[in-house]
């Protein structure tokens, strides 16, 4: 990560950053940037409030992307999971990445289902693949893996080739069919 002190957000984002800082619990949020991305790191306790305010007051009305990464053994990582929200304003085209985090053993963040309906499936996907629970999501169930599946495959401690689930089926012979 680039050092937060050295980074000042571009002119276009100054008002948005100021707005985000005005949310309770966000006064010390970290602003960073890389290439054309401007990132705000918001503590999970305040993430819902901050995102709600960014939508209603800063006009960031489009939730472009919502996903997560597992930072297990990542260089200098403090938290295990990072969750990002890529927001954009349809009107002005300003784009902002909001990041928050969660930790083992019970990774949880607040759901933004009420703010953007588009978050519905994206949050379910993160729940399915990482096991992060989105509190307040009305229909949080697995979406890509079978309901009975027991692991979260995109976690770093899950092997690429799986734990043998893919071979756990009955083989049909010609006579049986």
């Amino acid at each position: 990560m680039s050092t937060p002190e050295a980074y000042t957000p571009p002119e276009s984002h100054a008002a948005i950053v100021a707005l985000a800082k005005s949310v309770a619990g966000c006064d010390s949020l970290i602003v960073s940037g890389f290439r054309d991305n401007v990132r705000l790191e918001v503590p999970p306790a305040a993430s819902l409030e901050a995102l709600r305010k960014l939508r209603s007051h800063a006009g960031l009305d489009l939730l472009v992307d919502l996903s997560a990464a597992d930072y297990l053994n990542y260089p200098n990582a403090v938290h295990r999971y990072g969750i990002w929200y890529v927001l954009e304003s349809v009107e002005t085209g300003i784009r902002l990445v909001v990041k928050t985090w969660a930790d083992d053993p019970d990774p949880r963040v607040d759901s933004v289902f009420d703010v953007w309906r588009g978050a519905d499936w994206m949050e379910r996907e993160v729940f399915d693949l990482f096991g992060i629970v989105f509190e307040g999501h009305p229909d949080l169930r697995r979406i890509l893996m079978p309901d009975e599946f027991s692991s979260h495959p995109l976690r770093k401690d899950y092997p690429l080739r799986g734990d043998g689930e893919r071979h756990n089926f009955h083989a049909l012979s010609r006579e049986e069919s």
Binding site: E148, S150, D163
Partner: peptide, 10 residues
């Protein structure tokens, strides 16, 4: 190491 996926894949 094997996880035998539980349940019956309803």
């Amino acid at each position: 190491r094997q996880i035998v996926a539980p349940g019956n894949f309803r």
